[in-house]
Amino acid sequence: MQAPQTPPISAAIRAEAHRREVAARRRSGRVALVFIAPALALVALFLLLPVLFNLGLSFTRWQRFSGLDEFGGLMNYQRLFMVPYLSEVVINTAMWVIGAITLPLAFGLGLALLLRGVPGEGLFKALFFLPRVLAPAAVGTIWFYVYAPDGVINTLAGAAVGQEIDYGWLFESHTITPAIIMTFVWQTLGINMVLLLLGMAAIPRDPIEAAHVDGASSWQIFRHIIWPLLLPTVFVVTILNVIAGFTAFDLIWVMGNGYPAQRSLSLAVFMYYETFSNSRWAFGAAIAVMLSALVILVSWALTVMQSRVEARIR
């Protein structure tokens, strides 16, 4: 914004200019609010208000037909610790979080390194990415039959060992969670790989070439050049994976359909079950609050780590 050039300006003119500018800025601000208003209204009404409402509900005694107007204090939060199968819920959720952080990243990274510069890289990328655009509900439905006692996995394994196998992967307590996590990995590995490839593409070639010339091994190049420069991407991918792991629902809901203790397969499923199958609304609201606290805490911690790492690179 340029100030008026003519040297002698009276105070009145200057004041007038200032007034106009303030008015213009105000007008601009008002117009801006009009542009923001619809988005803000929808988000406030359907997302922000519900969050507060949920928090409030978690302190009531609401279950089944009544209790909406009765204050229950921390009752619902204490109730969680009295659930007899809480340890199963926690263990399964922990498996999900750890599995979702490490496996898609590890496989995705391996694949990204493998595919870099391979003939037909584009086609490979597209095919490995394909499961990602399928709905989790559709993927879960297909994999439900893949893991069935007479399904693909058992048929292939049976052919390999030469005898019939009819193991129920999704009906046994020690295989159901790993099995569903593997389906999750199958679906998300592609996007992890693509994101990492994007990150790698941004890494300058010169230091890598120079290291090659110096006779550095592939591992040394990866460890000392690629990995540090890739770390920011790794963090982004990890945060996405953590949230996906904590909140995984569709796959478990569809694939755990025949498993009697389905509700204990993760915190998200447990919340859904207590709320909509057992009609313990206030309790469900409290579980949602705790789940949110966990997710926010972990992603915040990762963000802090990320900015530290980025600061160190610079």
Binding site: L40, T275, L291
Partner: peptide, 27 residues
């Protein structure tokens, strides 16, 4: 546009994605 505390308005709307979906279901 010249919106005062544009950042705060942004954070307000963006806060909608901080929470896992489970937080919205009951309400």
């Amino acid at each position: 546009l010249k919106l005062r505390s544009a950042n705060a308005w942004f954070m307000l709307i963006f806060a909608g994605t901080l929470f896992p979906f489970q937080m919205f279901l009951v309400p």
